[in-house]
Amino acid sequence: MKTLIFKRLVQLVGVIWGVGTLTFVLMRSLPGDMAYRIAASRYGQDNVDSQAAALVREELQLDQGALSAYKDWLLDLLQFRLGDSLVSGEPVIETVQHMLGHSLLLSFAGLALSIAIAVPIGLLSASKGKMVDSALMGFSSLIRAMPVFVIGVLLLLLFALHWNWFPVAGFGTPAHLVLPALTLGLSLAAVSNRVVRDSAKRVFGSSFYLFSRVKGLSKWTTFKRHGIRNIAVPVVAFLGIQLVSMIEGIVMIESLFSWPGIGHGLAHAIFARDIPVIQGAALVMGILFVFLNTLVDLLCHWIDPRGVAES
């Protein structure tokens, strides 16, 4: 367990360093006069003059040598001085905080939906005959083949544009959450239902499951006492792997539905080259990712204390 926590700590440092370095390279590699460009994006193309550019140059210390600038850049980052957005001028911390809330809401709703879909379907295909199994698994393979934004586009076309059941984009009411969360939930469930099914099949066919019935326990008692927890072990471990799909999914889904979360913010900032926001958003995503991974590790250890599962 200790080595695992240590590994996660190293990752945390790695995230901060990696994001800092990438954004630094990004800033230095902007074409043309950097100060001029940043000023242009900040104050609008018409309001740029050499004075504004000089202001920016001084503020971002663009004149120093690359190495010392790199050092300052990382030091700022370590103190979480993320600066202001080049587009809106608002402090990055506030922007990111605001986005984080929306992203968390979406991801938990999506995750909950995916569990609600995947677990019954997985158990069903593990316990019912070959026909049901093949049908359900075939259907999930089809969904799995669709990139998350394709699922999103289809849901959008069907439920928002064709039938007008839900709003096309935006946020604020529970109705706005439905389609983005459903998209995320479907794309996650299409993969995890197979994990649930394989795990359940393994447990249902195991000798300890059979032995419990031979001992005289009923089907239902056996499932409750020996099924649930044993089935959960690989499923929870798989959650760790799914975190990647979840965060990647969020980037796409938020962009598609204009959901004001971190993924939308990051994609937008990259398009607009708003470097402080890129940095802030990527940093929070990285930290969130490492944190959630640690959470999954702990959960795995709690369910199956036999040995720390490989992450």
Binding site: S207, V214, K215, G216, N230, R306
Partner: peptide, 18 residues
């Protein structure tokens, strides 16, 4: 369980590992 029971071949596999 109540009248008739079969012992497993490999006890390690027949006991709930968790």
């Amino acid at each position: 369980g109540s009248k008739l029971v079969m012992l497993p071949q490999e006890p390690w596999n027949a006991l709930d590992p968790l």
